[in-house]
Simulated assay, not measured.
Amino acid sequence: IVDESDVVFLSVLPQQAASVVADLNFDADRHLLVSLVATAGLAELREGSGLPKEKVLKMICLPSVARHESVCLITPDPKDFPPLAELAPMFNAIGGYVATPDEKNFSGLMISTNLMGPVYGIMRQNREWLRNTIGLSKLEASQLISKMYLGMALDANRHLDNPDRIDELIAEQTPGGLNEQALENLKRLGTLDHFDRVNTATRSRIDGESDGWIDPEKHISHL
C-alpha cells in the first residue's frame, strides 16, 4: 500500500506507532507522512520513517471530521513547508484546519479535542435529570437534549469570522432570565473554573509532566 501511495496516514494505537513506522519503507523523495497518533512526537516520527522534517505532519481531529463537520489540528503549519502545502486543500475540503508551527503549542490546541467527553457527560447528566424529574423516556430525553445542543452548536458556528461570536451569544440571553441565571449559578458554584483545571491537567499529561489525574487537595497528581 505504501509503495502505491504518496501520502501515508498513520492511525494506530500509541504503543504501536514506533514499530509500524519502522516496518514501512518510505521514499524521502515522494512520501508525506501524516500521523494521527497524539502521543507520537515529530522527532520520533522523522527518525523512524527516515523522512525529512518538511515531509512529516501531525494531525488531530474528532470523528465528526469524517462528515466534514469538524476541523483538523495540525503541526507544523503546511504554509511553512512547500511539500506539506499540497495537503492544505484536502484539509480545507473536510472542514478546515488550525495549524501551529511547533509541538509545544500543539499540545495546547489538542485540549479542544478533550471537550468531547465532558460535553457528552453533561448531555447525559441533563438527560438523566429529565428522566428522573420530568418522567421522560430515555429516548425522548436523549432526542430533546441532542437537538438542543445541536441548535446551540449551530448558532455558535454561524459568523465564524466574528471573534466575539460566543460572547455575543451569552450577551443575548434575556436579562434576568433563566439562561442568564443558570450561567451565573454555574459561576458561583465554580463549575466553569473546574474546566480550566481539567484542561490544565490534560495538557500536563500530554506534555509528560503528570498523569493527568486531579487530586481535589493537590490539584494534579504528578508522576
Rank of each mutant, 00 (worst) to 15 (best):
D3Q: 14
S5L: 14
V8K: 02
F9M: 12
L10E: 01
S11Y: 04
S11N: 14
V12N: 01
L13D: 03
Q16P: 00
Q16G: 02
V20L: 12
V21F: 00
V21Y: 03
A22T: 11
N25M: 10
R30N: 13
R30V: 11
H31V: 05
L32V: 12
L33H: 00
V34Y: 03
S35G: 06
V37H: 00
A38S: 13
G41M: 05
L42S: 05
L42Q: 04
L42C: 05
E44G: 06
E47S: 11
S49H: 05
G50F: 03
L51T: 01
L51A: 04
P52Q: 11
L57P: 00
C61S: 14
C61I: 09
L62F: 09
P63C: 08
E69S: 13
E69L: 12
S70G: 14
V71Q: 03
C72P: 00
C72F: 07
C72N: 06
I74V: 15
T75V: 14
P76G: 03
P76D: 04
P78R: 03
K79W: 06
D80S: 13
P82Y: 07
A85G: 05
E86P: 00
E86N: 10
P89S: 10
G96E: 05
G96L: 07
P101W: 07
D102R: 11
E103S: 07
E103R: 03
F106I: 05
S107K: 11
S107C: 11
L109N: 03
L109I: 07
I111H: 00
T113M: 08
T113I: 06
M123T: 06
R124Y: 11
N126Q: 07
R127I: 13
R127E: 15
N132C: 03
T133W: 05
L136C: 03
S137E: 07
K138V: 12
L139T: 14
Q143Y: 00
S146D: 12
S146N: 09
K147C: 01
K147I: 02
M148Q: 10
L150F: 14
G151C: 09
D155G: 04
D155C: 13
A156M: 15
N157V: 00
H159I: 11
L160N: 10
D161C: 07
P163K: 13
L169P: 02
L169G: 10
A171E: 14
Q173A: 15
G176T: 04
L178P: 02
E180H: 02
Q181H: 06
E184K: 11
E184V: 04
N185Q: 10
L186N: 03
L186Y: 02
K187R: 14
K187Q: 09
L189A: 13
L192C: 06
D193P: 01
H194E: 12
D196N: 10
D196I: 12
T200A: 15
A201W: 00
S204V: 01
R205I: 06
I206F: 15
I206K: 02
S210Y: 04
S210V: 06
D211C: 11
D211E: 12
D211G: 12
G212S: 08
G212H: 04
D215M: 07
P216H: 09
P216W: 09
P216V: 06
P216Q: 08
E217A: 14
S221L: 13
H222N: 08
H222R: 14
